[in-house]
Amino acid sequence: MSESTANHTFALYLGCIAPNRYPGVESAAIKGCKKLGIDLVPLKGASCCPAPGAFGSIDMNVFYAMAARNLVLAEQMKMDIALVCNGCYKSIWEVNHKLKHNKDLRDGVNEVLKEVDMEYKGTINVYHIAELLYNDKFVGVDKIKDSVVNPLTGARIAVHYGCHLTKPHKDREFEKEVMLNTEHPMWMEELVAALGATPVEYRNKMQCCGAGGGVRGYDIVHSLDITNEKLINLKEAKVDALTDICPFCQLQFDRGQIEIKEKFGVSYDLPVLHFAELLGLAQGMSPQDLGLDLHGISCEPFLQKVL
């Protein structure tokens, strides 16, 4: 394989939930990527992406302008963006894509950005970290395998893909074509297997976590009922952990299990880890270094299996 050994550098767009609720995701992403030849440098002064459910529902124009401001910060650094959250991907990637292709939108946004001495130029690209890890142009499954020092052997791990990275696939432009399969994708399972774990499929795995669109705040019981359906299906598959690539989904599955116990009287005790955290573990980071003790649902039973 004629793989490039050159280092790639990206501006790391953090969003809200990862740095402020699951800081291990931030730490694992930076350290894990470093070992795989990717430098993630801070995107100084970034704000909320803004939340696509809340802002998109209120006023699309504000949504475009706020996302464009984050994009301009990266344009000023002359760096592509890497991010760790599906919701952020929806905002940052999609607005970048729309502004690049629609002059009317771009002109409208730039009129507002002029008030803060900024101009959106459309000079950078936006990537989700899962995409960088899967695409061998940047990392690829083989390189991940080589970086594993603590294989997660024996652990049965299910994947929650989430919605906003790949849906709607008609609008997405991934270099890896398998990422456009939104009915029955398997590329995340390949990543899980690269860490030595056993990927496990379950009924209706592409269903939404239930948190998005402002529904978690609008009708928590409705939102958790969707999550609960997924948890029932996961329980049936007898998995040791669930992995996700979106801190908002993670919040919904992790803290959500506590709320489900309160409201529905059912408990699952299913550990939920962002793929970056899982990668960190497999690369030898300790659970303490990953802040796994901050999770709502204890990761202990899973950790005992893999450490």
Partner: peptide
């Protein structure tokens, strides 16, 4: 306000409409 914006409908719409 009950749409979670999961885009499954948009993903599958046979007329390429985006109901979301």
């Amino acid at each position: 306000w009950l749409c979670t914006t999961c885009y499954s409908c948009t993903d599958r719409c046979p007329r390429d409409i985006a109901p979301t």
